[in-house]
Design a protein around this nucleic acid. Sequence first.
RNA 1: CGGGGUGUAGCGCAGUCUGGUAGCGCACCUGCCUUGGGCGCAGGGGGUCGUCAGUUCGAAUCUGGCCACCCCGACCA
Length: 441
Amino acid sequence: MRLSQYFMPILRDDPKEAEIVSHKLMLRSGMIRQEAAGSYSWLPMGFRVLKKIEQIVREEQNRAGAIEVLMPTIQPADLWRKSGRYEAYGKEMLRIKDRHDRDMLYGPTNEEMITDIFRQGAQSYKDLPRNLYHIQWKFRDEVRPRFGVMRGREFLMKDAYSFDVSREAGQHSYNKMFVSYLRTFARMGLKAVPMRAETGPIGGKDSHEFLILAETGESQVFFDRDFYDMDWNAFDIDYDDVGAVAKVVDDFTAKYAATDDKHDPAEFERLVPEARRLTGRGIEVGHIFFFGSKYSEPLGCEVQGPDGKKVPVQSGSYGIGVSRLAGGIIEASHDAAGIIWPEPVAPFKIGLLNLKAGDAETDQACNKIYKTLEAKGVEVLYDDRDERPGGKFAVMDLIGLPWQVIVGPRGLKEGIAEVKNRKSGERSNVGLDRIVERFAG
RNA sequence: CGGGGUGUAGCGCAGUCUGGUAGCGCACCUGCCUUGGGCGCAGGGGGUCGUCAGUUCGAAUCUGGCCACCCCGACCA
């Protein structure tokens, strides 16, 4: 993409409403625009990031055996009356009437609807286990939306729902999601620590929250330093291997980690030596629940077992805040100059800087690099604007693409361009003829 | 929902107390330039001052209502 033809409204000053760094940087880099309290438009840069995050989530859900569907944002109230949550959910649920005066609502979550879908589509224990998920916009009318996309009212969430014949089988479904979450966040360059959690209005018995550590997190967290030394990338396990999956869960839940509402100071001291006790702030990016038959019973979601008897299915639900992750990743990865995108979620891989746009020789060299890389499918944002270099460097640092390729008259004389890594700051000179193979080779 | 605050150009702000129909920086536009890490030069465009009503010869400025947004607390992906 040529920057001269793109839509990326950059701001030099911090908008005053933004308090935390991710919100500031998202607004400044032209990723999002606020439309109302807690509701945002995703501009091209932000949209690209959102889609990358979404795709990683999707791939890891699929890998763990979950099946993608898509349910509507607007739901009929009747299902929620059956589960009892139409009243219980309170004011956070946005209630709407259609033209026939029927009660509708903008879905804050989908347990009822998916349970009803599954009830209609599965009759036998042979139809289990299954895990259905979708990635869809949710609306929760938060009392106080804040921190940009970190606590919006309208937000993109991946929510998965598992269905099993028994509690034991359900545990494996839960464990698979647990492991898939570790994988998902690791792929985005995040260490999301699983912590024992409250179940909240979703209900249920077993629940873990996944939190990334960041100063601006909304939750106080207490955890074992050992989490830092764990191998966060060693989850190439067979999801069908019940024991192996359970072992990873056991390893990660054996160590102490809790948010303030579940924190037990006595346990903390008993289990964790003083030198390893850490406390900090965390951002919740995922939350998984096992709630058994809480929804299947009121909604009549039963299957016939081998013995011919009907049993209510055992379920769990598994959420990832996709739009929140965009902010969360920035909180975890930035410096004074701007964002530092982990490569897998970066809106473009390379920023190509033409330091003297308008100069025939420089233009030609840049064009060649740009076109060749594009043809090879490498995502390049080419700053071809006729601007002074200082501003270009600042913009590139702000938007945080992993690599910068800098082409100017000085380097051209020697037939080289400068390649800079945004994260490490390392620069090296690369021959013009080797740039393409460096990134597409 | 309780407490506090703000609304003036795309963004950040001044002007409001002491009424006289708007100003600064950045961004933007035009031209020039010797264009290598947000300070090259010169010229220029842009605002029903959140909204409705009131007071007044006259309101961004005074009064009242409404709306929106932000911050601090209790809830949540």
